[in-house]
Simulated scan of single mutants.
Amino acid sequence: MSKLQSDALREAISQIANDAKEKKRNFTETIELQIGLKNYDPQKDKRFSGSVKLPHIPRPKMKVCMLGDAQHVEEAEKIGLEYMDVEGLKKLNKNKKLVKKTCKEIPCFLSVGSCH
């Protein structure tokens, strides 16, 4: 298929949404769309460059913790992001209970720079 048929796509999404309404579940359901472009080099061809603003924020209350050195910790402080430096990582030092507690509080970690 060389072209994306928007009518078929809209119909499929509405069918999925209707099925979800019939059988209610106790969690937030999402629909993911994945499109593969064949014979397309994003370095050379810029036809599809750009960004799309989503109408709803996917996870507005999701916490992210930045793991990094002093410079990255300063950047995280400026933007109000939770952070953990090398000393904080050393405190975890294979303590399973502390690691599990930290992972329950913060579901997403971003590692930047060189953390040894």
Results as ranks from 00 to 15, higher is better:
M1L: 11
S2C: 07
S6L: 15
S6R: 09
R10P: 01
R10E: 09
R10D: 08
E11H: 12
I13T: 05
Q15S: 09
I16C: 07
A20H: 05
E22R: 02
K24W: 01
N26A: 10
E29H: 04
T30Y: 10
T30D: 01
T30R: 11
E32L: 06
E32Y: 03
Q34I: 11
Q34T: 15
Q34W: 04
I35H: 08
I35S: 10
L37Y: 00
D41P: 00
Q43L: 11
K44L: 13
D45F: 01
K46G: 01
F48R: 02
S49C: 10
G50A: 08
G50E: 10
V52W: 15
K53I: 13
I57G: 01
K61P: 00
M62P: 01
M62Y: 00
M62I: 01
M66F: 03
M66C: 06
L67F: 14
L67D: 01
G68E: 11
G68V: 09
G68C: 12
Q71V: 15
V73P: 01
E75K: 14
E77C: 10
I79Y: 12
G80E: 07
L81P: 03
M84R: 13
V86I: 14
L92R: 08
L92K: 09
N93V: 00
K97I: 02
L98N: 08
K100L: 13
T102I: 02
C103D: 04
I106G: 01
P107Q: 05
C108N: 04
C108Y: 07
F109P: 00
S111A: 14
H116K: 04
H116P: 15
